[in-house]
Amino acid sequence: MLNRREFLQKALFSAGLLSVSDAFAEGMVERNEAIKISILHTNDVHSHIEPFSADHKMYAGRGGVQNRFNLIQEVRKENKNTLLFDCGDIFQGTPYFNKYGGELELKLMSKMGYDASTLGNHDFDNGMNGFLAVKKHAKFPFICSNYDFNDTILKNKTLPFKIFNKGGIKVGVFGLGIQLDGLVDKKLYGNTIYLDPIKKANEYSRILRKTYQCDLVICLSHLGYSYDENKVSDSILAIKTSGIDLILGGHTHTFLEKAQEFTNLEGGKVLVNQVGWAGLNLGRIDYYFTKGQKKKVNFQSGRASFVEIK
């Protein structure tokens, strides 16, 4: 049992003074209302800064950072407890990357207020040197939990996990990258060691869940949604782990109409989402939290539809 002082310190440190009082202020208005956390995300944007050109066969006029930012701002206006993530392959796909090396992509993401990203295989396309050269333009952390960078120049340049406090809710985030061998030229990723994503996922979700008492655990993944062959993917990760609430994915450019539900090792529900590529779609999952139940209440899937904004 903690004494008062320790408890107070723990509460203030873990939740952050501001978010504690914010949540309290909201709680005063409607004590029984749920706390809503909005998770927004993108993946495989591949340097698509401008919308697709008006004569594009499939995506004419769609995407673009300004349109994306406007949508994000609308959600933030509606709910200040919003987090924004990217799941890698920020780089490569338009001449913006060839000419400016990713500087512009990271500047724009910082301006949009991204909270974190993980690394995709194409984020190594200019080598670790190339990534490091532009990393200073990112005002958000890169979270990589299964790449061991200790023997590379990226040592201590990424985080294994991060905890965000939103409205008193602790959101723990870790990140998983894909096996680089055979996918990325060895000279580009050097002595990076790829570690088993399922093992690392179980390890970090346990740390976030148990040690840090997170209310919501999110994995930023660049493993891919699913494969014909027996290769680790988000669909496999979801059922072979426990403690993860949400897997945000990338790599396979999979357009999901909405987040898909899976059952994890302990019978709990885990959502997996991925929003195609090129910044065409913005993923959104709203979590509603209630306080005080001894037993965790399984969420019901609520309203879910695909909204095309003209």
Binding site: A11, G27, L71, N281, Y288, F289, K296, F299, I309
Partner: peptide, 23 residues
């Protein structure tokens, strides 16, 4: 405040999932 908010863990009551086209 700390007691009000810190005693018991939060739990997910429900979720809503919407992927929105960026245009």
């Amino acid at each position: 405040i700390a007691f009000l908010l810190g005693c018991k863990p939060y739990s997910i009551k429900r979720t809503e999932k919407v992927n929105t086209s960026v245009s």
